[in-house]
């Protein structure tokens, strides 16, 4: 009892430090949200409290145009890419373990080398290749480079190693085909891994900037990050409107973050074990 009441200065310092770091981490979010409800004049005057200009900012944003297009495209791109990517990459991760042999291990080793290839280095050849194939301004052009990623394959490979092999054997005896075993046994059982993988993949697609900037140049293919970034130009920035765009593009991720924090963390940790 006495020990608990005894306040050690070391502990107080630790809490002060953590409170400071937490405040610095959270404040920019608060600033984003509260600025979305203020008009630019108030923001420039340093108004920290929420205001009443949300609807005005919204009206300005709507009249600036394209917010609907950008939101729709971002959702479409991220959803389709996530579905495809999870399917293709998990199939490979599963295949590398269930049908393991010497050659497949070698192939996996070669694939791992692709982690050393920075996207910035292949940007230009990819752009030229995709323009020759007519993939500029298409969903396929946006998605193709990220459908199969070593990160996801590795993550599913690790997960498959803890998948009980008896299930596969029993299903084979029951006469289920190999693909059906994957579809009807593996996929439902591994739902948590899929959830985690879906979150990282969705987040990466939702947030990606450089590749869409290069490949989705037409205004009707606009995505939220590109739209938000486009307000950067000009001498006088309409901060109220900018913060509203930034809020709109951040809220879906925040919702996922708070609703599924565990999967979020597992997704980020991914293949590391």
């Amino acid at each position: 009892m006495r020990r608990r009441l005894h306040i050690r200065p070391q502990r107080v310092l630790k809490h002060l430090f953590l409170i400071l770091v937490s405040f610095l981490s959270a404040f920019p979010f608060y600033w984003m949200l509260s600025s979305a409800t203020n008009d630019t004049a108030d923001i420039i005057l340093g108004r920290v409290l929420p205001g009443r200009h949300l609807l005005v900012n919204w009206a300005n944003l709507v009249s600036a145009g394209k917010i609907g297009t950008a939101f729709f495209n971002s959702v479409r791109n991220a959803v389709v890419l996530t579905a495809l990517s999870l399917f293709i990459s998990s199939m490979a991760g599963y295949g590398f373990v269930i049908f393991r042999d010497k050659w497949k291990n070698k192939v996996m080793g070669v694939l791992m080398l692709s982690m050393m290839i920075p996207p910035a280095a292949t940007l230009i050849p990819m752009f030229r290749m995709f323009s020759q194939l007519g993939l500029i301004n298409t969903l396929a052009g946006f998605m193709l480079p990220s459908i199969a990623t070593v990160f996801l394959i590795f993550m599913f490979r690790q997960a498959t190693q803890s998948f009980p092999y008896e299930i596969v054997q029993a299903a084979r005896i029951d006469g289920l085909g190999e693909f059906n075993i994957f579809l009807r046994m593996f996929m439902p059982i591994m739902r948590p891994t899929y959830a985690a993988a879906a979150i990282v993949t969705f987040m990466n697609a939702w947030n990606s900037y450089l590749w869409p900037l290069v490949i989705l140049q037409s205004p009707d293919q606009l995505t939220l990050p590109i739209y938000a970034g486009s307000f950067r130009g000009g001498y006088v920035l309409d901060y109220g409107l900018i913060m509203l765009v930034v809020t709109i593009s951040t809220i879906p991720m925040l919702v996922i973050f708070f609703a599924l924090q565990r999967s979020f963390v597992v997704g980020i940790l991914g293949s590391v074990k």
Partner: peptide, 14 residues
């Protein structure tokens, strides 16, 4: 951990 939920574009704008 919260800042991980923003895109680089969003956090740059903020």
């Amino acid at each position: 951990f919260l800042p991980c939920a923003t895109s680089l574009v969003s956090c740059s704008m903020i």
